[in-house]
Design a binder for these strands. Structure first.
Lengths: 236, 236
DNA sequence: CGACAACTTGAAGAACCTCAACCCTTGTGG
DNA sequence: CCACAAGGGTTGAGGTTCTTCAAGTTGTCG
């Protein structure tokens, strides 16, 4: 049942036994409404969640209330696996859409990694994939202009969704508002709007009512300086 | 021999046996000159390095040759432990000063984590600390202005050096050039110079010839919106 | 002392932000 | 079915921040 969700975050294969043990360890399938804090920062965490449906984000709020997204999570992501070694998160985890997750208690994770060292390795790998994406976001914010940042967000998300079968490479659902894109890219909502118009008018990509339509993938990647190597894709 | 270096990146304690095994696993103590690429991106990596002396960085270069630092490493950091699960790095690792490192082969790491599950956990934790710092850098770049970014870099580095006994809280060695600070903060060297003058003239912090002198720590933290929680400090 | 690299400063312009108004869509109650 | 409210999206004008380019100045090392 979980197998198809794990395609985007694997280093090598999972055995049938490992997969079965993972599925047997699921504490519960849980649903949350959109726009809700799922895991607050600074509080002891006892579970981890594998995202099955919907979009989630991790974010930090600044002193003036301005929000910075630090990650966008798509189905297949082990959203807060970081909380297992860390125990307390330095950031909030929230839902952007209604979401469905498979919840695991930390005790269950503990048992799994003792019994299946390969699963431990896979989980470590998964969290380091998050770290690699963090680094790419640092690069995006530090070295790209506003339109490059938005292009990069689209390019990365398209590539990640394609890994789990949620994009065919031309258009995909990205149920965010312009202000969410602004929060991810370190720019204002107003400027995000202008950037989107610019990308649209130059026939690179359009974003409207939660759908991204890529008109020129090569140009999108060029403007984003995007190379998918950091995602360690298994499907190429 | 390694013990004093590990103070900043521990979750709980290491037993004498674990420490001894770690020390026995050191492949070699290696020195590198300043300003050298130590681990290039995209190439299979077979070893990891624990930084003993000097400063190292991880960075990515953009299409126009502009460099973005994604991490600054201080003594005690397991610099490229990410390469163990990832096998290939998405970024370069380089020395800023002459450095001395303890090198471990991946095979040695493999043996260690099989025999000492607690070491495996510590190593996972260490890489997630890097991820937490990455998130903070994302916040810094996305939500702070130029002087806040520089202040944040100084605040974070001071706190980390204090954890390993290399800062007393008032002044510390940070052997970087203004252009390195620029690379870390996503601003130009020229603007970095103006920001440093501003911080100096407002009696917050000075930076001169590789030394940071903190004049008003509270104000530095305020401007950086700095809270050390994400470093999971064990010394408070 | 001379050469070189790093640092410093000024001036002009580009990128992005702020503020304020308006538009368009969607949902709701009469 | 219409009126209207609310939230998100769009546009314009003007200001701030940061960049770019170019010209010094300072410090270091042979």
């Amino acid at each position: 049942m979980l197998e198809k969700f794990l395609a985007g975050r694997r280093r090598g294969e999972l055995s049938d036994g490992e997969l079965a043990a993972l599925e047997a360890s699921v504490d519960a399938i849980v649903e949350f409404p959109a726009r809700q804090i799922i895991v607050p920062h600074g509080k002891r965490v006892e579970t981890c969640m594998l995202l099955l449906e919907g979009f989630m984000t991790r974010y930090m709020d600044g002193a003036d209330g301005e929000r910075q997204l630090v990650a966008l999570h798509v189905p297949g992501d082990f959203v807060d696996l970081h909380s297992f070694p860390l125990r307390v998160l330095d950031h909030d985890v929230g839902s952007m859409t209604p979401v469905k997750v498979a919840r695991f208690t930390h005790e269950a994770i503990e048992r799994l990694i003792v019994e299946f060292p390969n699963l431990a390795r896979q989980m470590w790998f998964s969290t380091l994939l998050d770290a690699a994406m963090h680094r790419e976001w640092i690069f995006r914010l530090g070295r790209l202009g506003a339109s490059g940042r938005v292009a990069h967000l689209f390019a990365e998300t398209e590539r990640r969704l394609r890994m789990v079968g949620l994009s065919e490479g031309r258009s995909f659902a990205l149920p965010l508002q312009q202000s969410d894109i602004a929060s991810a890219c370190g720019i204002t909502p107003v400027h995000t709007n202008r950037v989107l118009r610019d990308l649209r008018e130059r026939n690179v990509v359009t974003f409207s009512r939660g759908t991204v339509r890529i008109l020129d993938l090569a140009q999108l990647h060029r403007e984003a300086e995007f190379d998918d190597g950091y995602l360690y894709p298994s499907d190429r």
